[in-house]
Design a protein around this nucleic acid. Sequence first.
DNA 1: GCAAAAGTGTTAACACTACACCCATGA
DNA 2: TCATGGGTGTAGTGTTAACACTTTTGC
Lengths: 225, 225
Amino acid sequence: MPSEFVKVTVDTLAFAVQQGELEVLLVKRKHEPFKSFWALPGGFVLDSDKSLEDAASRELVEETNISNVYLEQLYTFGDTGRDPRGRVITVAYLALLRQEGLELRASTDASGVAWWPLKELPPLAFDHEKMITYGAQRLKYKIEYSPAAFKLLPQKFTLRDLQTVYESVIGKSIDNRNFRKKFLSSGVLQELDETSQEGSYRPARLYSFSEEDFEKLPDRPVFVF
Amino acid sequence: MPSEFVKVTVDTLAFAVQQGELEVLLVKRKHEPFKSFWALPGGFVLDSDKSLEDAASRELVEETNISNVYLEQLYTFGDTGRDPRGRVITVAYLALLRQEGLELRASTDASGVAWWPLKELPPLAFDHEKMITYGAQRLKYKIEYSPAAFKLLPQKFTLRDLQTVYESVIGKSIDNRNFRKKFLSSGVLQELDETSQEGSYRPARLYSFSEEDFEKLPDRPVFVF
DNA sequence: GCAAAAGTGTTAACACTACACCCATGA
DNA sequence: TCATGGGTGTAGTGTTAACACTTTTGC
């Protein structure tokens, strides 16, 4: 076989925030190598995949039963020595999900599928720990200049929910008055006529994110550093 | 051959600013497909390449004689139909260069190597025009929040040089008083005891970029949108 | 009326924008 | 002395950070 042929896989880093914790979706491997280690869902790119994103999407459905998610290319890992079986180049994708309503189901190739808090990851297959560290870092930047946070929330959410997402992702607490002011004046939130009732205390107003209003925002100023 | 084996190439988008114009480095193809079209320098990843970046670096030397450049991964293109010969996945790299002092030399596989202004690109092979458009956009963002501009300049440069780089990349003119204020107060420039003499007018002070001072800057504030 | 989380305003420091003229040099 | 690009300051506006108490609800 000519040496320029290599194996290419796509792996997906699916993140979600649950109870104020940033979590990532992992599957438990049933076969060697790294049998019974946890790993990112993913697999080989096939000729039938029209695009790399299609391949990632197909693997995500097969291995976790999650479909119809927003995927964004993260990085391509291609150092030698990543896989004991030989050179494998992996294109990593980022997915941002709301956990509620998902029905995880492991494929027959896996002995489990589960959300893991980033702070308590199990031993991982291949270089997947490095990949997750990289992805979490990218998400941290991304949430600051893009509306990524809203992909981690249901359509209707409270300002507290939104703040919790930011705090989980960036790993710091934020002043709630400044946070609310910022978002209420940003023009990307629509105040709904509904409240959420979570306990025996004051109900919180619900908001939704307005994609159209976000697009209308002027470009940010030059020279941010 | 099992279908999960595919061909992978690395292509490099090498940018430089010359006379206030953002330019990209291209090579003229000697062979089919796209014979005599201009294309990005690049080629197949080999087993002997320890990393994708090594592969990009090796190809850049082979095809243009440029070595020792800073490379950064840009994006991986993998749709079907990119290459008439079959599925090819391409990992694109970004290189930021100063043109001065480079000795371009085409490989025997190419019939030319040259810098082309982004505004006057020739017809390009494969989907390379799309790749260049994407790379230019990324550079535009990148220059705003990172010290990328300094990679496009010699070690010693005038504030006018720096401003020209910014203006070429973002495609807009900038108020020179505000620009100077911004950078002089940013703490990343070191004023040198030298001036540059370019014509029969006032010589301009030279500065250098201080990587260490840049690293010392505090993290930018949260929520930039 | 108590427990729990929702919601609210002001001030001071800093950063950004807009804008037009004088300065230093070589020829 | 002139032509050329180098270099400078200020006022107004907007943005951010710091900071603590009142309100609403169910029980």
